[in-house]
Structure formats: structure tokens, C-alpha cells
Amino acid sequence: MLASFAPVAPDDTTMIRRSFTAAPQQLPAGAALPLDPERNQARLVVKGWIARGAMLTDGRRQIVGLSLPGDVIVASGSVDADLQVWALTEIVTVDATAFWIALSEPGPAASPLREAWRRFRTAERLRMARQVIRLGRLNAYERTAHLLLELYERQVRLGTAGGGVLHLPLTQDVLADILGLSAVHMNRTLQQLRRDVLVDYRAGRTVLQDLKGLTQAASLSAVCGPLLPAAS
């Protein structure tokens, strides 16, 4: 993941591997991810999808961010540190605290690894801005198109998606919680995207049938950066 943002030297790769020495932790879907902000704890997502968000008193839920394999979840020092964090699917994570602390300490500004980490964290903040704009200004059709493109972009960067096909282990209810929609509205929106031959949605595997048309449907200003890598 880091190497997709900037070149990472062999010595940096060795340092990264040595940082993750603890045994992996496996949790079932629905389990809360234990993070201790007092220890500046961080975890690397090895497998599965993780949500960050909040539960309202009436039972409604808003998911504000998703962590995918290759992402690092930090207990403190992030804009969403106080949100609930839980597994959407079965997950495997590993302690990344040593790695996080090493990159948080002062070091060579020109380090390739630090530059990759800086761009990685910038991308996280950009996704938060995109989510705010999605919820605040886009309609349901635009929100859905934009989210699917963003998830595809992230998986292409990691090398786990291509050709318009992405892994999407999210139910319509979870998509609705991300996009601030009712379950009924979410279902109707996906049906419309299917009728327009833009998306073939199935929980587990989704085909973006027309990337150009979907990009036009997303209607997001270029001020938030490109949604797809140039190679796509």
C-alpha cells in the first residue's frame, strides 16, 4: 500500500516487516476493535473490512469511514479517534504501534518511507472530506456512484481489483449506513444504477460496467482529487 504512494527503499521494507512481530488478532464480524488511545496504539488491517462511525440513541447508525486491508488504524492523533470501530466482516489485524511510533518521531524529511506515509495519511484525510461532501451535497444516485468509485480506486491501488470488478462484502444495509440513506432508498438507487447499465451490484462482488459513465454520475468537483488512478 505504501509503495503505491511513493517508492519504498529495501531497507524501509525490512524495517516495516520487523515492526510487525506480534501475533495477528482475528475477530468475527460485528466485534469491536480494541484500541487503547493512552498507548497511542495502532493496528494494521491484514484481512477484512472495518467501519468507523457512531450509533444514535434511536438505533440509527452512521458510518463515516472504512478501513480495508493495507490500512493502519490509529487510536489517537486522527480526526476520527473518538468514533466506534468495529468489524464489518471477519477481520485479521496485527499490532502496528511500533511502526506508527517510528514514523511519528522526528526523522529525515526526505525519507522515501516518510513521504509514502505522508501521502498515505493525506489520502485518508481526503476520503473524510469526500464523505462530508457526499453526505452534504450529493443526491443518493451521486453518493452511491462516488462511493463505489472510491472503493474501486483503493482496491486498484492495492492490486486487488481491476477491469471494473471490485470486492464488495457489504450488504445494502451497510451501504445505506455509509451513505446516510434508508434501506429502501438504497435498494432503489442500486436498481437505478443497474437499469442504467452502470453497476451490477452483488454483495461480495460488484462490477462497475461503465467507469466513465459512473464518474459522470458521481458529479464530484475535481477539487477533491481524481477518483481513479491514471492507469484505469
Rank of each mutant, 00 (worst) to 15 (best):
R118N: 10
A123E: 08
Y141C: 00
R119A: 07
A116E: 06
T122C: 06
E115N: 15
E115K: 15
R130F: 11
R118G: 05
A110W: 14
A109L: 14
Y141M: 01
T144A: 10
F120C: 08
H146Q: 00
E124D: 14
S111N: 08
A123N: 10
T144H: 08
A116V: 05
R114W: 12
L126V: 15
E124F: 07
R130E: 09
A109C: 11
R130V: 06
L113A: 03
V132T: 13
G136N: 11
E115V: 12
Y141D: 01
R127N: 12
R143A: 00
S111V: 06
V132F: 11
H146R: 04
H146P: 04
R121P: 03
R114F: 09
R114L: 12
R125E: 15
A145F: 00
Q131E: 10
A129W: 14
A116K: 07
E124K: 12
F120Y: 15
M128W: 14
A116Q: 00
L126C: 13
R125W: 09
R121L: 09
Y141W: 04
R137T: 04
Q131M: 15
A116N: 03
L126Y: 11
P112T: 02
A123P: 04
R143G: 00
R121Q: 14
Q131I: 08
E142N: 01
T144N: 11
L113M: 07
E115H: 15
R118I: 07
L126R: 15
L135F: 03
R125I: 05
V132M: 10
P112G: 03
P112A: 05
L138A: 07
R121N: 12
R143F: 02
Q131R: 03
F120G: 05
A110C: 12
L126A: 14
E124T: 12
A123I: 00
N139T: 06
W117S: 04
I133Y: 06
S111P: 11
T144I: 09
G136M: 08
R130Q: 05
L135C: 04
E115R: 13
R118H: 14
R125S: 13
R125M: 12
Y141Q: 00
H146E: 03
R134L: 01
R143S: 05
R119D: 11
R114H: 09
E142W: 05
M128H: 15
T144F: 03
W117H: 11
E142V: 03
A110F: 09
R130G: 02
E124P: 02
E142A: 03
Y141P: 00
T122N: 14
R134V: 02
A110E: 13
R143Q: 06
R114Y: 12
A145P: 05
W117C: 06
